[in-house]
C-alpha cells in the first residue's frame, strides 16, 4: 500500500546560510552546533488547518483592509498572485498564505519602525488568504517602497513583500520574501545575499506579469512557492531493516 510517507528531508544548501556576518544580526542568533536530523513523525507531518470562516472578505485586499473599505491606500496598485506547490509539483490546496510589507514610502506600521517616511493612514500592511483547490492565491496591494536599515554603513532593503505559508504539515512551514523584477537593490542586499545559490535567489524575484495585469487598474507580479513534499514508497510501513 502506498503510504503518504515522511517529509522529504530539507536540502539546506538551497536555503540561506544561518551565520552571515554581512547581515550582522545573524552573528549572535545562529546556532553553532549541528541540527539533529530524524525522519518526520506525526508531530511534523500534521499541522493546523484554517477555514474561510476565520477570514474576512477584505483580508487579501491590502489597499482596503485597514480602513475596512472606507479609503484606499496610497501607492502603485499591484496584484501579487501565484501557486503554492510541493516538491512533486502538486498544488497545495486550502492552505493559509499571509503577507506583510512596508507602505509605498518604505515604512512599516510597527512600533519599532521609526523611518522618516510617513505612515499612510489608509494602509495597515498585512493580508492573508487561503489557496484554492489547485493551490492558487492572490492579493491586491500596493508596491512597497525600498528603505534603509541599520546594518553596515548604508544598507537598503530592496522592495519586498514578506510571505508566510503553512502547507499541511507543521514542518513545511516557510517564511520568505518576494522581490520585484528589475530592482537594482537586490544584488546589494545582505539579506538577499544570505542565499548563496544564485538560482534559488532568482526564484524569489517575481516577474512582471502583463497577461494578468488589468488595464487602467493594476500591474501583476507572479510568485510561486514550493514547499517540502512527502516521500512515497510501498515500503514505508515496514519496520526499520524490513
Amino acid at each position: 500500500m502506498l503510504d503518504n510517507g515522511p517529509l522529504i528531508p530539507r536540502n539546506r544548501a538551497l536555503h540561506p546560510i544561518p551565520y552571515d556576518p554581512d547581515y550582522k544580526t545573524t552573528v549572535a542568533r545562529s546556532p553553532y552546533l549541528p541540527l539533529l536530523s530524524m525522519d518526520s513523525s506525526a508531530s511534523e507531518e500534521t499541522g493546523p488547518t484554517f477555514g474561510h470562516g476565520q477570514l474576512g472578505a477584505l483580508d487579501n485586499n491590502l489597499i482596503l483592509n485597514w480602513t475596512r473599505g472606507a479609503a484606499p491606500a496610497i501607492g502603485e496598485r499591484i496584484v501579487m498572485h501565484g501557486r503554492v506547490l510541493d516538491e512533486r509539483g502538486r498544488g497545495v490546496p486550502h492552505t493559509l498564505v499571509e503577507i506583510w510589507q512596508a507602505n509605498a514610502g518604505g515604512r512599516y506600521r510597527h512600533k519599532k519602525d521609526g523611518y522618516l517616511a510617513p505612515l499612510d493612514p489608509n494602509f495597515g500592511g498585512a493580508g492573508r488568504t487561503l489557496t484554492d483547490a489547485d493551490g492558487n492565491y492572490q492579493f491586491l496591494t500596493i508596491r512597497p517602497g525600498a528603505y534603509p536599515w541599520p546594518n553596515r554603513g548604508n544598507d537598503w532593503r530592496p522592495m519586498h513583500i514578506h510571505i508566510s505559508v503553512f502547507g499541511h504539515s507543521f514542518a513545511q512551514r516557510l517564511i520568505t520574501q518576494m522581490y520585484f523584477e528589475g530592482d537594482p537593490l537586490i544584488p546589494l542586499c545582505p539579506i538577499a545575499a544570505t542565499i548563496k545559490n544564485r538560482a534559488q535567489l532568482d526564484r524569489l524575484v517575481a516577474p512582471l506579469d502583463m497577461a494578468n495585469s488589468k488595464p487602467l487598474d493594476y500591474l501583476a507580479y507572479k510568485f510561486d512557492i514550493v514547499l517540502r513534499g512527502r516521500r512515497q514508497s510501498m515500503f514505508e510501513n515496514k519496520p526499520e531493516g524490513m
Binding site: P16, W100, G125, I175, A192, I225
Partner: peptide, 26 residues
C-alpha cells in the same frame, strides 16, 4: 520531476504586523 523547495528568508523585525497584528497595536 522534482521542484526545489523555495528558499527561506528572515521573518525580519516586523513579523508581528503580519502574524500577530494585535501585538503591535494593529
Amino acid at each position: 520531476d522534482m521542484l526545489p523547495e523555495t528558499a527561506s528568508q528572515t521573518a525580519g523585525p516586523y513579523v508581528h504586523i503580519g502574524l500577530m497584528p494585535s501585538y503591535t497595536g494593529n
